[in-house]
Amino acid sequence: MKLYDYVLSGNCFKVRLFLKFLDVTCDLEPVDFFPGCEHKSPTFLQVNPLGQLPVLEDGNLRLYDSQAILIYLARKYDSSGQWYPVNDPETLGRVAQWTAFADGITATSSAARLHDVLGYNLDIKAARAGAQTLFRVLEDHLAHQEFNDQHWLAGSQPTIADIACFPYTALAGDGGIETFIFPAIERWLCRFSMLPGFHNMPGMNYFT
């Protein structure tokens, strides 16, 4: 199995971390996302026509989109069914909902980070405001979950939805977005960092 990877990408980190949780080994193919912009090169566009990371290759399968990769890995390597609970329709629906929500976090919080860290030219005010709106929704949901003794996005167990939403929420500070005003989010990030096998990526400093 091979992962086309960029060390500073939160979407690549999701996959690396999930592989660690599942105790599955995978070769890494490092891509010069910055400053070389290799993901937009003709060679890489043959691998993923969208010019995005990560991409996973497993045998004849080639998958792009980090959330799709999480689903594949969960169904193939998680025999417990905890991470992608296909036999529980309600939980599965919530997993799909919060996994899709992660794309919004990427479009806003990750964009703000690319602007602030790597100097990308984009509308930083819109990116930060968009992230704040999503984080308020996430905060309300997580606070509500806590009242019901549900400590994870889709229920009482962590799922791929938590993995999908974690990195660009944890890295929001890199893009100049403060998350300390969202106490339920902070508590959820902290719980997540205590999952067995968790490790930081640059920009995070959870005690491990």
Binding site: L8, F34, V117, G173, D174, P202, M204
Partner: peptide, 9 residues
């Protein structure tokens, strides 16, 4: 880059 971004925070 991994090392430098650890310093950045």
């Amino acid at each position: 880059q991994n090392i430098f971004l650890q310093d950045r925070i």
